[in-house]
């Protein structure tokens, strides 16, 4: 019996305690209500300007300090943007730098996440190639950028990371950038005999390869 009664007693004690608290609170509220209302205008809080994120040059990035000295020569700049590391490299030193990024035991960038490109039409070095690398060891993602002119051939990194095979084929397919040392450089998304490179800025977005259409599709004359 005593076991059953004990919790009841406790709960009753809690209830009474709760009641007294409520009473005290209501008393406080009444006291507050008796005070005359403040009629002063609310003072506006000073607006804190949000810092606009921007590219900042960095000298002491831990990743790029560990690079081999021979390779580090080709690094043009290291930047930070919202905790993302961006490294711009000259095209000549790209391949050696990529090898070091993977094989350097302190870095170990063993995963090539993506290869893509940008078209700065009108610039002397028209294309910008972007490589996203991830290191499972450091848990870090870095971005390697390099510029290439329209007639320049970019060294393929497919011998460093296998996944570059298809990623570089995609860049070749849509931008027409050629990669030297690629095992199988042909179109991957568009038909093999397509003319033109659709992601170039001088390619009309609606332009369809009429020569390809006329040779592959039987376009019906829609009945009037």
């Amino acid at each position: 019996m005593s076991d059953e009664e004990k919790p009841k007693q406790n709960s009753e004690a809690q209830k009474t305690a709760g009641k007294t608290d409520l009473k005290e609170e209501s008393a406080v509220a009444e006291e507050g209500a008796e005070k005359p209302p403040v009629k002063d205008k609310p003072v506006p809080k000073p607006k804190v300007k949000k810092k606009i994120p921007s590219y900042e040059d960095v000298d002491d990035d831990p990743v790029f300090q560990k690079l081999n000295e021979k390779v580090a020569v080709s690094v043009l700049s290291v930047q930070k943007f919202l905790d993302q590391s961006i490294c711009t490299v000259s095209l000549d030193g790209l391949y050696e730098l990529m090898v070091d990024l993977r094989d350097n035991a302190d870095l170990d960038f063993n995963y090539l996440v993506d290869v893509t490109a940008l078209d700065y039409l009108g610039d002397e070095q028209r294309f910008c190639l972007v490589y996203q690398l991830y290191s499972y060891k450091l848990g870090r993602l870095i971005r390697i950028k390099t510029r290439a002119a329209e007639d320049e051939v970019v060294p393929s990194v497919s011998s460093i990371w296998k996944t570059a095979d298809w990623l570089e084929r995609e860049v070749y397919d849509l931008f027409g950038i050629e990669f030297s040392g690629h095992p199988d450089l042909r179109r991957i998304l568009l038909p093999d005999d397509w003319h033109g490179y659709p992601l170039r800025k001088d390619y009309d977005i609606k332009l369809q390869d009429q020569a390809w259409i006329s040779s592959h599709l039987k376009i019906r004359k829609t009945p009037v």
Binding site: Q208, W212, K218
Partner: peptide
Amino acid sequence: LKMAEVIQ
């Protein structure tokens, strides 16, 4: 367009 050929 690539699939149109297949559909045909």
